[in-house]
Design a protein around this nucleic acid. Structure first.
Lengths: 346, 346
DNA sequence: GGTTAGCAATCAACAGACACGAGTGCTAAC
DNA sequence: GTTAGCACTCGTGTCTGTTGATTGCTAACC
């Protein structure tokens, strides 16, 4: 069947009305929209066609029509008009003196949920190639050293190492030089047993300390690489604004998924091959709990391998235009700020 | 009216039955409990008295009785029997190689919520007297230094400082010695303008770097001291197990409070003067959203000023015996481990 | 005087009956 | 191809009657 111009107009009107109200849309409501001067009976005839095409359904006889996932998909792909966004709010947190990555991500999530009234989630960056940038040992007290480990992207972690024998300051200095010259620029994959054996040998009496430092490195870096990244969330309770997500045990099931960092990461990183904004509608998400949800995600990039994903989660009748344009504008701003010139610090 | 022995027995039976079922308890149910060989009619007479005393109420005529806040309070204060707890589960995470505080607190929260089926929340430690223990500067790359700041309790934070001129390694070493000899053992309150001026003077050409380091210290330490502490939560979704907390908009309202670190801190730290375990029942909490909840909190202490609070949040018909004895045993174990001998590392 | 059996009264919960309104599908006329 | 009109469907809200649990009261009992 032909999806002619009038059918498209009617479908768009149905979807946009449903986005606002959340109630099934009847033929009479559509016929009253100006620009489309036909009677409700005509609309009804067209609706039957749209229903045959699988774009809308009736929840029950004698109810209005509701868009199907396929209908939303058509809308998102072809009908939606791009809105330009006011970027003053979006960039406020970039313009402040640059903070650590976590804080930027947190405030991004806060802004997004406040701006959209949906739930915003931002996954912490995954470090793809964790080159060691600096290792620094220092005495903390008589029996403990602190090892500070900095990897590419200026992410610093520390680990406290108990020591038995007392090292002199000079020895500590030598140890620092030894560790840095051996390990700087290396990633976990580069560190073979051979390297480690040689390093330990060179450390002589302090081989145990070197061993502990290497343990600390692998623990810190490995964990960062393999565990699901941190997830910053904001506006989880917004799901209660939408009755179709709050009724029955829906809210519980959705919130349970949102609590699970691993599942959020899976959700956001599905076929995330190419860049750009992805929209998953209802059954397109892998989670049964999220059949009534839509998820919009995109990748962010702070440069230097600091990449993660941003996601907006809301009802299927989400204001796609708003969400997509907000994310798009945010990404453009971010690109402008972090990729034009070098950032000062992070 | 006299609260004689039989009345107490009946009240206890009502409360304990209600804790299990969550349904109003009728006179017949109580009369069937062995040990109390009286008819339902007698129980009814006693119930009228208990109701007059404000310990139980009927949700409506011809329904069974439900404990009031006052009834729970009497139960918690006087009727509850202490159970001894199997501590094998409780101490598992203490016996593992000592991790950073955050991880211990996280796993404590996880264990508590899994063990009780309620929500567990642990506030991060507040550092009462943040003495500086170590300041360590190192070159990260040509134009950035990293300053590692360690305070009492071995909590390390880092801050990246951009520098214009290139310092030699020797200068850096001198700067480290200068900073540490001037600042070690000092807290924020000790640092007067006079100190700072002298320190800057001594730093000579590197006064700007010293200034930046001091900024970093005040930023890191001040923030830690004045913002609400981190809150680690586990089992938030457990509230959906209890219909009286899940129905209507209750769940939303409770979860909204639980999302708010500031309000959680307020909730836990109410008149937390003396130690021990505190129980807040229904209206005794300051939050209107938590009228149907009970909150059990206690203070933990890792030593060296690392103190915060643990809280269990559940329905008013919470298994108080279980929760209180779990927390008590946990605190005793913690005391044994952290206060008997010195801990190895944190 | 305390205890108990018996009984009427109360009320939530549930199910069936009914009217109402929104919305559709179909048909005949334009 | 479009429209008006009408019968039909079905969710929603209201009312009514029934059932079952539980109470309070009273009179009899120990």
């Amino acid at each position: 069947m032909e999806l002619d111009n009038r059918k498209i107009q009617i479908l768009k009107a149905i979807i946009e009305t449903y986005l606002e109200t959340g109630e099934p849309v009847g033929s009479r409501t559509i016929s009253k929209i100006n620009g489309l001067n036909v009677s409700s009976a005509t609309i009804r005839n067209e609706m039957v066609d749209l229903e045959e095409m699988g774009l809308i359904v009736q929840p029950h006889t004698s109810a209005g029509r509701v868009p199907t996932d396929k209908g939303y998909r058509l809308y998102v792909d072809r009908l939606m008009e791009e809105r330009t966004r006011d970027i003053s709010k979006l960039t406020r947190f970039f313009s402040r003196r640059m903070d650590r990555v976590e804080n930027v991500l947190k405030s991004m999530a806060n802004m997004l949920s406040a701006d959209t009234n949906y739930t915003a989630m931002v996954t912490g960056p995954r470090y793809m190639r964790n080159e060691l940038k600096l290792i620094q040992l220092a005495y903390l007290d008589a029996s403990h050293l602190i090892a500070v480990i900095v990897v590419e992207g200026n992410v610093a972690r520390n680990k406290i190492i108990p020591v038995k024998e007392r090292l002199t300051n000079e020895d500590l200095l030598k140890l620092n030089i030894l560790l840095n010259s051996a390990l700087q620029g290396k990633s976990l994959d580069d560190l073979t047993l051979k390297h480690i054996a040689r390093l330990k040998e060179e450390a002589g009496p302090y081989r145990d300390v070197v061993g502990e430092v290497l343990n600390a490195i692998s623990e810190v870096v490995y964990k960062e690489q393999n565990e699901p990244p941190e997830v910053y969330t904001s506006g989880k309770m917004n799901i209660f604004r939408y009755p179709e997500l709050a009724e029955g045990t829906m809210a519980e099931r959705i919130l349970t998924v949102l609590e699970d960092k691993g599942r959020i990461t899976d959700l956001f990183e599905r076929d995330s091959g190419s860049g750009g904004i992805r929209v998953y509608i209802g059954g397109e998400t892998p989670m049964p709990a999220m059949q009534n949800c839509a998820v919009v995600t995109t990748e962010y990039d702070f440069g230097k391998g600091l990449r993660g994903r941003i996601g907006i989660i809301g009802p299927k009748r989400m204001d796609y235009e708003h969400v997509v344009s907000t994310l798009k504008t945010l990404m453009e701003e971010m690109d402008r700020i972090y990729h034009a010139d070098n950032r000062e610090e992070m």
